[in-house]
Nucleic acid binder design. Structure first.
Length: 424
RNA sequence: GGAGAGAUGGCCGAGAGGCUGAAGGCACCGGUUUGCUAAACCGGCAUACGUGGAAACGCGUAUCGAGGGUUCGAAUCCCUCUCUCUCCGCCA
C-alpha cells in the first residue's frame, strides 16, 4: 500500500521533521529501522532479480533442447534449485517489505518550514476577523437549543447513545440550511465540484488518507465486514482518484461533499462533552484539493480563505491559528485551525481545520499526475479543510446571535434556506 | 441470498503450458503518395522498478482483475478473493 521507493531519500528529511515536531526520540528507532530495512530490501531485490534472470534463460534453454530432441536433465535440476532459492528470497523480501511498511506507517508527515517548532504552546494566532461578543448573560447553546425545541439530547441518547443528537423542527431545518449554504457557496463561488459519497469505506481508503492504522480505535466499523464509517468526507473524497494518474491539466482539482461523520472519540470523555461540542456523529461539508508540489503551499491559503469566507458570511467572529509542529495532525504538513468564539460557553471552538498533506496521503493512496506528456508520474499534493462542521457552528450561532429574550436571530445568509429570520 | 457468464495494452479483440510483452483491428504519432480533405501504402506506438549511459538508448525484473498454488517454465491448469454482466428471489 505505502509506496516504498523513496525511503532512502526521505530518511534525513524525516529525522529533521521529527525533531521539529519534538518527536525525534520517540520515532528515531522507526526511522533507523526503516533506513536499515530499505537497504536490505534493495539488496534482496538485486539478488532476486539476478536469480530470476538466470532461471529465465535456463528455461529457454530447456525449451530449445526439448524441441531439438536433446536431453535437458542437467538444466532441469539447476533450474529447480534456482526456483527454491527464488522462493526463499521472495519470502525474505515480503517480510522486509512488511516491516518497512509498518515502520513507515508509524512516522508522521514532515511539517513545512514556516510551521513553528514545538508543541501546542507555540501555536500562532495569525489573524482574527470580527468582534467576539461579551459573554455576560449569554446562555450556553444547550440551554437555548433545548428551550427552543431545536435539539433533543435525551431522545438522541435513547435511540443511539450518548453523543448522538436529534435536531427537531427549525433545528433540523437549520442543519439542512447549513448544508445547502455551504455547498452552494463552494460550488458556485469557489469552483468546487460537488460529490455525494458513500459514508462507508474499505480499509484501503482509510489507510490512504492515514486514519489507519494509527487511529483504528476511533473508527466505527461494521462488524465482520472490513468496512468503516467515515470520520470525515476527506476519506472518500481524497481517495476518489486513488491509484490513478491524472493529466496535469486536471490540477488544481477542487472537490466538495456533504457527509455525516462518525467518531468514537475514544478517551475523550469528560472534555468538552456537553452539548454539541463533541459528538459521535455530526455533519460536515468538506473541501478537498489536489495540487502540484509547486503550488500546494499557496493552495492552503486559498483553501483556508474559502473556509473563512463561510464564517464571514455567517457573521461569526473567528481567529486563524497556525498549529505548531507538535500539535499538527499525523499526516499534515501544515494546518490552520479556524476557531469561532462561543460567548455562551466562553470558549473558542475549532470549526475548521485546513491542512496541506504534501505527498503524504498521495503516496499511500497512489494519487499521481503526469507533469508532461510521456513524462514520469509524480505524486500530487493533497489538501483538505472543513467547509463547516455543523454542530459547533450551530452552537456558535445559538450563542452569538442569542437575544435577551432567549430567542435567536438567524444570520442573514441562512434566511432564504431556513425560511425565517428568527428561532423562537 | 441463489444460479450462471466474464475480467487480456488507450479502446475492441485473439491466444488455451515454452517460439507471446502478448496476433489482428481501431485510435494515436512519423513518413510516402495525392489540387485540399479523405483513402491507400510503409514505419512507430504499454507501464513500473532496478541497472548502465551525458544523452539517444541498452540490459535486467515484473505486469494479461488481485493474491496464493502446481510446474524446470503459467495470460493459459488449480484454489481463494474482488469487481462486472445475465437470470431468480428479497427489499427502501
Amino acid at each position: 500500500m505505502h509506496d516504498l521507493r523513496m525511503v532512502r531519500e526521505q530518511v534525513d528529511t524525516l529525522r529533521d521533521g521529527m525533531r521539529r515536531r519534538g518527536k525525534l526520540d520517540a520515532l528515531a528507532p522507526f526511522i533507523d529501522r526503516a533506513a536499515e530495512l530499505d537497504t536490505e530490501r534493495r539488496a534482496t531485490i538485486q539478488v532476486l532479480e539476478e536469480r530470476k534472470a538466470a532461471r529465465n534463460s535456463l528455461t529457454q534453454d530447456v525449451a530449445k533442447r526439448k524441441r531439438a530432441g536433446e536431453n535437458a536433465d542437467e538444466q532441469l535440476i539447476e533450474s529447480r534449485n534456482l526456483g527454491e532459492e527464488i522462493s526463499r528470497l521472495e519470502g525474505e523480501l515480503a517480510m522486509v517489505e512488511k516491516d518497512l511498511e509498518s515502520s513507515m506507517l508509524e512516522i508522521p508527515n514532515v511539517t513545512l518550514d514556516d510551521v513553528p517548532e514545538g508543541g501546542e504552546e507555540n501555536n500562532k494566532h495569525v489573524r482574527a476577523w470580527g468582534e467576539p461578543r461579551a459573554t455576560a448573560g449569554v446562555k450556553p447553546h444547550w440551554e437555548v437549543g433545548v428551550a427552543l425545541g431545536l435539539i433533543d439530547f435525551e431522545r438522541g441518547a435513547k435511540i443511539s447513545g450518548s453523543g448522538f443528537i436529534v435536531f427537531r423542527g427549525k433545528g433540523a431545518r437549520l442543519v439542512r440550511s447549513l448544508m445547502s449554504f455551504a455547498l452552494d457557496l463552494n460550488t458556485k463561488e469557489h469552483g468546487y465540484d460537488e460529490a455525494w459519497l458513500p459514508i462507508v469505506v474499505n480499509r484501503a481508503s482509510m489507510t490512504g488518507t492515514t486514519q489507519l492504522p494509527k487511529f483504528e480505535e476511533d473508527m466505527y466499523g461494521i462488524s465482520n465486514e472490513e468496512l468503516f464509517l467515515i470520520p470525515t468526507a476527506e476519506v472518500p473524497l481524497t481517495n476518489l482518484y486513488a491509484n490513478e494518474i491524472l493529466p496535469a491539466s486536471d490540477l488544481p482539482k477542487a472537490m466538495t461533499a456533504y457527509t455525516p461523520c462518525f467518531r468514537k472519540e475514544a478517551g475523550a470523555h469528560g472534555k468538552d462533552t456537553r452539548g454539541l461540542l463533541r459528538v459521535h456523529e455530526f455533519d460536515k461539508v468538506e473541501l478537498v484539493r489536489y495540487a502540484t508540489p509547486e503550488t500546494s503551499a499557496g493552495e492552503l491559503e486559498i483553501l483556508t480563505g474559502h473556509a473563512e469566507k463561510a464564517l464571514q458570511l455567517l457573521g461569526l467572529p473567528y481567529r486563524v491559528v497556525l498549529l505548531a509542529a507538535g500539535d499538527t495532525g499525523f499526516g499534515s504538513a501544515k494546518t490552520y485551525d479556524l476557531e469561532v468564539f462561543a460567548p455562551g460557553v466562553g470558549v473558542w471552538l475549532e470549526v475548521s481545520s485546513c491542512s496541506v498533506f504534501t505527498d503524504f496521503q498521495a503516496r499511500r493512496a497512489g494519487i499521481r499526475y503526469r507533469p508532461a506528456e510521456g513524462g514520469k508520474p509524480r505524486f500530487v499534493h493533497t489538501l483538505n479543510g472543513s467547509g463547516l462542521a455543523f454542530p459547533r457552528i450551530i452552537a456558535a450561532i445559538l450563542e452569538h446571535y442569542q437575544n435577551a429574550d432567549g430567542t435567536v436571530t438567524v444570520p442573514e445568509v441562512l434566511r432564504p434556506y431556513l425560511g425565517t429570520d428568527r428561532l423562537d
